[in-house]
Nucleic acid binder design. Structure first.
Lengths: 362, 362
DNA sequence: GGATTCTTTTGGATCGATCCAAATCAGGGA
DNA sequence: TCCCTGATTTGGATCGATCCAAAAGAATCC
């Protein structure tokens, strides 16, 4: 920490930053000929202060190279202008887009996001949560890890920490603030679409853990299958949700007879895995077997054939969640809101009429 | 901010958290019968304090539901236990993995990362940077946005903000701390591999902006091409780096004659786009045209045929960068370190001997 | 027993902002 | 000129930790 730089302080050159003597409100006050309080008001963009003073103070701050000390402000005012974000897999492009959406809203509002990866582990989630409490974040944006107990939301309430759940929620119905997509309806629409095309053996490649996102897919599927007078339990597969798992689970499904003629996949990664599997089996997606993904990630439009997918709009969800968090910070006692964005089916090339033999045999 | 809740303090029920009267060191001190200073020492895990007192204090903190106030500590000690992370595209799986690696190291060290997306925009990068300064982050992990001036690093130095550059660095040679992969050698190895297989018309699908990551690919390519006595300028394509751009640029390359027999792509996204283009043209990757990607993302092993790729190990880079940042925080004046991880070629199915006609015609 | 050392504990002072009640200022009307 | 009103400005007190020099206790040695 060499501080012996004072030598080069030539008064002619007002260096923007002096060495290691941090500029504080006090220095600005002295420089601008006002009190600390006034400077503070200027920094808070308060309308109380006169325009001319405001200008003078701003200039002083500028020439002295002042950097606002959010930490000091926090101590007194209990606002940190930070928000915690917990997702279960940053490496998944879906969450990448989600995080980008969050960022988009927080940034102009002057908020900064803390980000962590729970990796769907309770323990990591809990550890990060306590870090965030130490940092006194103003709010939390949470995609809860698997098996998160419903009590967590109550706990957060006791801790006075506003929380917006995203895409998944703990407990049966969302108790607190929540932003997600209307997956149930989206899946229903997909099933109806496939039924209209003539499909009968429609498989659902679901997840294996019983959280809300999973349940909604299942509910939408069951309900639509029932409506079409088809057996929903016959073609239900539960398992992992990676691209690799999608591939393997599809191979497994095709090992049984009768094989499905259409696959609805928990997310696009699984769907892309399914495409790989079909190609491996020498089958043509969209001709020999229909495939529907969920999320509509950018990649979906680029595969050959292009993937039919239910758009969950991660970016829009991220934006909505961040906005909700900001309003909740502004009014902590307002009524919780549940925002459910429409999930619309984007029909592309992987859904077409089933092969003739399959249609007849059902 | 009503604080008039003191009435309901029933001594019989030691609620874990009282309403709105935050527990501070003072309360713990009173409860444990020691001074504030001692409690502070316990919280800092100082070895000075006796084991028995330590235990007692810990228990008091526990029963009172104390949450450490990092902000208050920061004010006095000038350490925030936070680190800023700026990447240019969170939605890219490569950066997802990188961020995951960073997280992996910071979390156990008790640090929390602020994350932002520069979207390769100078302006967004600058705005976030000033936010981070306000928050007094202890260090910065930066994948500099395109066209970032070399002066930025000096500026950060003046601001006393330790910075580790990742994957890209500003200026000709990395001036400060840096973590990246040995792309130059990796690309060289790829060219040599292709030459050994018999390829002569080896194209490079490079980026169009002139940052270090780009230059390294170019240098590696030119050098290896020269070594093989091939013309490096003939088959050089510059352009966008998305999957879509990869597809389109490949189509463009194949519109010219003679078409290349091998493609080395700036990253795996571009390579995957190239695979789509080849398939679209009715060509078989690995048979009609070799394709090499860079990064070796998970998806590379799953395409059919599997993609040959140069592994840049984003997760390992993230870890190394975070570790370097931690050591730099511990000793700000230590000599800058440049860590270059090996980039090894993973040969898979998309690289094979060139088609006979192409070999003869060269 | 008292001096000496080592271990543990402690009371202000301090970091840099915000909050709030009170002081000051400027302009208008009687 | 003086009072009143509304617009600005201001000086402590305060938030909750850390730092530091010094005090208190315990152990050791002569």
């Amino acid at each position: 920490m060499s501080q012996e730089r004072d030598a080069d302080r030539s008064p002619a050159l007002p260096r923007t930053e002096r060495w290691h003597t941090r500029v504080t409100l006090k220095e600005i006050a002295a420089h601008a000929g006002v009190s600390r309080s006034t400077v503070s008001l200027v920094m808070q963009e308060s309308p109380l202060v006169a325009e001319t003073t405001r200008q003078r103070v701003r200039e002083s701050a500028e020439t002295l190279g002042y950097v606002y000390n959010r930490g000091a402000a926090t101590l007194r005012s209990a606002r940190t202008a930070t928000v915690g974000v917990i997702v279960h897999d940053v490496a998944n492009p879906f969450f990448g887009a989600l995080v980008a959406g969050i960022d988009e809203v927080l940034e102009p509002a002057g908020y900064v996001p803390f980000l962590a990866n729970s990796d769907d582990s309770q323990e990591r989630q809990a550890r990060f949560l306590s870090r965030l409490r130490e940092q006194r974040v103003d709010a939390l944006l949470l995609c809860p890890a698997e098996h998160t107990p419903a009590a967590l939301i109550d706990q957060l309430g006791e801790w006075q920490l506003p929380c917006v759940q995203i895409m998944r929620h703990v407990g049966e119905t969302p108790l607190g603030d929540y932003v997600g997509a209307d997956i149930r309806r989206g899946v229903g629409e997909a099933v109806a679409h496939l039924v209209t095309l003539g499909h009968r053996r429609i498989a659902l490649l679901a997840g294996e853990s019983d959280h809300s996102a999973d349940r909604e897919r299942l509910d939408g599927y069951r309900q639509a299958m029932r409506a079409a007078e088809l057996d929903a339990n016959l073609m239900l597969s539960r398992g992992g949700l990676s691209r690799r798992a999608g591939r393997e689970r599809t191979l497994a499904l095709f090992a049984q007879t009768p094989a499905p003629t259409a696959l609805i996949c928990h997310n696009d990664l699984v769907a892309l895995g399914a495409l790989l599997a079909l190609r491996h089996l020498g089958l043509h997606p969209g001709i020999d077997c229909a495939v529907v993904g969920i999320d509509d990630v950018e990649e979906a439009t680029l595969t050959e054939p292009a993937l039919t997918s239910i758009a969950t709009q991660p970016r829009a969800c991220g934006r909505a969640a961040a906005e909700l968090a900001l309003t909740r910070i502004a009014s902590p006692l307002g009524a919780p809101r549940q925002i459910v964005l429409p999930a619309t089916l984007h029909v592309r090339e992987t859904t077409a009429v089933p092969p003739v033999d399959a249609k007849e045999s059902s």
